[in-house]
Nucleic acid binder design. Structure first.
Length: 257
DNA sequence: CCATGTCAAGGTCAC
DNA sequence: GTGACCTTGACATGG
């Protein structure tokens, strides 16, 4: 918690206004071994940090890991996933963030029958708590569910869709980035805030879809030029986090002068 | 200093 | 079976 406060202070000083809070903030929070009342124990710190976020005009999000699968064909996996999603939601609730602070997941597996798997996602989504549903958003992946698949699920559930630019380059139906960005923008209501875009570029020499370790400056400039005039919040997916973030803000600032 | 490897709860898919 | 996945970070080791 102390580290989170320091990170957010760094962010404010460097103009980083959109930040993904680590899922490890409370280790093992959704695991059966957890018997510590962390919610009460840290309540005051959550409040203080939440006030700082609000005062600084920041937006935060969280991203559960690859084990959180709402559409699994195994009930226990689904149950564990709900517990994990509830944990993530609780953190954002304890911070007293508004519904623009999101918990973001992928649609999940295919299990040899994609339509069934998508249908299962929709049905399960509808059983989730209201608190969770107001925060949950889905992101396209590079293997199973394209942006258009996500939009199909949006049409059934109203869930907003996050665009991951690199995943889209690997798995698509021929749409350009500006086209899909326009599409996913329509899935975000005003209470959801600006559409979220996960930006990264291909790591040279790695498998297609592998995220670059650091910001590719010229690629990022080109991306911004392509989507000029559109409103969204960018989350960088890079290893060297703050270094690339500060660089990206410098570039975006120069572009929009 | 950098790169690499290992470990931490849980899943799924491609090879 | 194994590796890969930004959920990622900490830490050790070797160059």
């Amino acid at each position: 918690m102390g580290c989170l406060a320091r990170i957010l202070a760094f962010n404010r000083n460097n103009g980083v206004l959109f930040f993904r809070i680590t899922s490890d903030l409370v280790p093992f929070a959704s695991h059966p071994v957890m018997d510590f009342p962390w919610q009460d124990h840290f309540r005051g710190m959550f409040e203080d940090i939440g006030k700082f976020i609000k005062k600084s005009g920041m937006r935060v999000s969280m991203h559960p890991g690859q084990y959180t699968l709402l559409n699994s064909n195994r009930e226990t996996v689904f149950d564990n996933s709900v517990k994990d999603l509830e944990y993530h939601t609780q953190v954002l609730d304890l911070l007293e963030t508004d519904s623009k602070a999101k918990v973001q997941i992928h649609v999940g597996g295919v299990y040899g029958a994609k339509l069934d798997a998508m249908d299962r996602f929709v049905r399960r989504y509808e059983t989730l708590s209201k608190n969770l549903r107001k925060r949950l958003v889905i992101e396209n992946d590079e293997r199973n569910y394209s942006v258009m698949d996500c939009i199909e699920i949006h049409e059934e559930t109203g869930i907003p869709v996050v665009l991951d630019t690199l995943h889209h380059e690997v798995l698509n139906n021929g749409e350009s980035i500006p086209e899909v960005l326009a599409q996913i923008s329509k899935t975000w209501e005003s209470r959801d805030g600006a559409p979220i875009v996960h930006y990264s570029s291909q790591q040279p020499g790695s498998r297609p879809g592998a995220h670059a370790k650091t910001l590719d400056v010229s690629h990022f400039r080109q991306f911004l030029k392509n989507v000029e005039g559109m409103d969204f919040d960018v989350m960088l997916e890079v290893k060297d986090k703050n270094h690339s973030a500060v660089k990206a803000i410098g570039i975006a600032g120069a572009e929009f002068q």
